[in-house]
Computed example of a mutant assay.
Amino acid sequence: MAWNEPGNNDKDPWKNKGGKNQGPPDLDDLFKELGQKFGGVFGGGKSSSNNSGNNFSGVVFALAFIIATVAYLFSCVYTINEAERGIKLRFGEYVGVVEPGLSWKWTFIEHIIPIDVQSTRNLPASGFMLTQDENVVHVEMQVQYRIDNARDYVFNVTNPDDSLSQALDSALRYVVGHAKMDDILTSGREMVRQSVWEELEKIISTYNLGLIIVDVNFKDARPPNEVKDAFDDAIAAQEDEVRYLREAEAYARGIEPRARGRVKRLEQEANAYKAQVLLDAEGEVAKFNKLLPEYQAAKEVTRQRMYIATMEKVYSNTSKVMVDVDGGNNMMYLPLDKIMQQQNNNQRPTSQVNSTSSSNNRPASNTTISSSGRTDRFSDGRN
Rank of each mutant, 00 (worst) to 15 (best):
N4W: 14
N8Q: 04
D12H: 08
P13L: 06
W14C: 01
K15Q: 09
G18I: 13
K20E: 05
K20V: 07
N21I: 04
D28E: 10
L30G: 05
G39S: 01
G43P: 05
G43N: 00
G44W: 00
K46C: 08
K46W: 11
S48V: 09
G53P: 00
F56V: 14
S57I: 08
V59Q: 00
F65S: 10
A68I: 04
Y72I: 01
S75R: 07
V77A: 06
Y78T: 04
I80K: 03
G92V: 06
E93I: 05
G96A: 05
P100R: 00
L102M: 08
W104D: 03
F108P: 00
E110V: 02
I113C: 02
I115H: 03
Q118R: 13
N122Y: 15
N122F: 15
G127K: 07
L130M: 11
D133K: 14
V137A: 06
Y145C: 01
V154P: 04
F155H: 01
F155I: 05
N156F: 04
T158Q: 15
N159Y: 12
L172V: 10
G177C: 05
H178N: 15
A179Y: 04
K180M: 14
K180L: 14
D183Q: 03
L185N: 03
T186N: 10
S187L: 12
R193P: 09
Q194I: 07
S195D: 12
S205M: 05
Y207I: 06
G210H: 04
I213C: 08
I213Q: 07
D215P: 06
D220E: 10
R222P: 00
R222S: 09
K228T: 01
A230C: 00
A230I: 09
D232T: 09
A234K: 11
A237T: 04
Q238P: 00
Q238W: 13
E239C: 02
Y244C: 09
L245N: 10
E249H: 11
E249C: 02
R253E: 13
I255K: 13
V263E: 12
A272T: 07
A272V: 01
A275N: 05
V277W: 10
E294Q: 13
K299N: 00
V301N: 03
Q304H: 07
Q304Y: 10
V314M: 14
N317V: 07
T318I: 11
V325M: 08
V325K: 05
D326C: 08
D326I: 10
M331D: 09
Y333G: 02
P335V: 03
D337R: 08
K338V: 10
M340Y: 13
N344R: 12
N344Q: 11
N346P: 06
R348M: 14
P349Q: 02
T350M: 12
T350H: 01
N354T: 09
N354K: 14
T356S: 14
S358M: 14
S358V: 09
N361H: 13
P363M: 04
A364I: 15
A364R: 13
N366G: 02
S372I: 03
G373L: 06
D376W: 15
S379G: 12
G381V: 04
N383Q: 08
